[in-house]
């Protein structure tokens, strides 16, 4: 069980929630759990970087990166705005 931070662009898919609790032992499991509960997230998560404990999962084991209870997972899509 981990806290997943939802970026503003995806909050309409999570009912406005900024943080949600998700189940799973790996990042893949967590994201699958999220998508199962919030189906409109399907196809959108692939554009977000994922950080576990402040580290980009691409520098760890990618979607197989283990997640332990209490870890904060950050989903971070690119934002264009400087306006």
């Amino acid at each position: 069980m981990s806290v997943v931070r939802i970026p503003p662009t995806l909050r309409t898919d999570t009912g406005g929630e900024r943080e949600v609790i998700a189940q799973g032992d790996t990042v893949r499991d967590l994201l699958d759990d999220l998508t199962a509960r919030f189906p409109t997230l399907d196809g959108k998560l692939e554009y977000a970087n994922v950080y576990v404990d402040g580290e980009d999962i691409r520098t760890r084991d990618g979607f197989k990166t283990p997640v332990t209870a209490g870890d904060t997972v950050i989903l971070l899509p690119a934002m264009a705005g400087g306006c």
Partner: peptide, 20 residues
């Protein structure tokens, strides 16, 4: 390195569209 591919426009609204 940070963002290898830009998101599709509908996933990256600007401030003009989404506010700031």
């Amino acid at each position: 390195c940070l963002f290898p591919t830009p998101p599709p426009p509908e996933l990256a609204p600007s401030c003009a569209e989404g506010g700031v």
